[in-house]
Amino acid sequence: MEQVQSRLVVAIVLSFFLGLMVATFADVRVFLPELLRGAWITIQITAGGIVVAILAALAAAIGKMYGPRPVRWLAITYIEIFRGTSALVQLFWLFFVLPYFGVTLEPFTVGIAALGLNVGAYGAEVIRGAIQSVDRGQWEASRALNMTRMQALRRIILPQALVAMIPPWGNLFIELLKATALVSMISLGDLAFKAQQMNQNTLKTVEIFSLVLLIYLAIALVITSLMRALERKAAKGLSRGRG
């Protein structure tokens, strides 16, 4: 309850300050459009990263749990490397080192790939935990009905694990959003990049960085409320009953 109230306070304070800024600072008209263009890039990278993260996490979790030995080792290596090193190191590695292997990617692609793979490694452990939290009887019933492991996983286990997964994934998506600021360091024109650029051009340091923080907060609040809605919907599907 208190959590929700805090979030409400944040939202109210946010809209108040946004309004105040637009009303007070004439210069807002100069840098706001640029910042919003940057925010659009940030949103695109976040969205792309989310897709990559989910796919990578699913593959790694299932590979680690049920794959034959080589697949299992591959999944574990991926998870440990991406959880064990910094997101920035991963980003730089894909950006600076991969070309030496003959693979040159657009900064935009590198950003989505690096951040998606980083969050995906954490997501894999979330998925694994959620799958393991499903009652063992559900596996046994599936087996008694002669389903294959993949059929049971897809049709019976994952739909039930979904509810437990949504809140931690919500947190991971916020982490992903925050990590997108790193792409400014491979000169991609996201919100953090535009903030630095506008800061150098206009020297309106206080206004720009405050506004940028608020824009990130606004995007985070949208993600949080979307995930809440999803959680409610998924929980409703399951609350009709424990079997």
Partner: peptide, 15 residues
């Protein structure tokens, strides 16, 4: 609570 939420929801780099 609001301050904690705010700090947790925005990028460290910008901070």
């Amino acid at each position: 609570g609001a301050v904690v939420e705010f700090i947790r929801s925005t990028p460290l780099l910008i901070q």
